[in-house]
Nucleic acid binder design. Structure first.
Lengths: 102, 102
DNA sequence: AAAACCAGTTTTTTCTACAAACCTATTATA
DNA sequence: TATAATAGGTTTGTAGAAAAAACTGGTTTT
């Protein structure tokens, strides 16, 4: 292993993606076209506040799109991964592989 | 993607390994039998305090062994990954793969 | 003698994840 | 009818952790 091969790779790891909860969210979203708040809540076993925070972070980074609508009179929120999100998720894994054992 | 497949995988991610700097350190250590402080310092481009903190965390978790000796009159510290460290590094990647895109 | 090096430790700052409490409105239930 | 639960959050507080900066004690170089 030469110095330049490993050199500073850790700096290329996107922290928005790197957080395990958000990795799980993105993984789910890459294989489902649409997911909603409650599905993520029960699947991931988070508190609502915590989930909302992660969702916000992903939305701010343009990784996901948020759709708010009413079903009857009840609010319903669903999410979709964006093209950017999908691309960044892929890129993240390419970078991560540089840090994996052979 | 079924619920149970993704369910809570994020909780299995070992945070000691997950930090990018420590991933880089472990990656280096899996392919070199011995590395020293300065090598890591210049290779990774960290401050000494920051590197020392990461080293400590890895030592506390029994991931690496620290060997302190004198070369002439100067202290010299080198590190080696332990069997535990190697195993946990492997295990980490097995878990992470559950979160990777197909 | 002064400056710089080695291998850190200690201190401080900054950031983050996470939980708990709260909120508004709606709907189910006893 | 009261109350409990649901949906989808926001606000607030805390604990832990990453990172930089400053400090240390000894050594070596200039």
């Amino acid at each position: 292993m030469s110095k330049s091969q490993v050199n500073q790779i850790h700096n290329s790891i996107n922290r928005v993606v790197h957080e395990p909860v958000r990795l799980a969210i993105l993984k789910i979203m890459t294989s489902a076209k649409k997911v909603d708040f409650n599905f993520l809540l029960t699947t991931l076993g988070l508190t609502k506040g915590n989930l909302a925070t992660h969702i916000n972070k992903l939305e701010t980074a343009d990784f996901i799109e948020v759709k708010k609508e009413f079903r009857g009179k009840m609010p319903h929120t669903s999410y979709r991964i964006t093209r950017t999100g999908r691309r960044q998720f892929q890129k993240y894994w390419e970078n991560m592989k540089e840090l994996a054992p052979e």
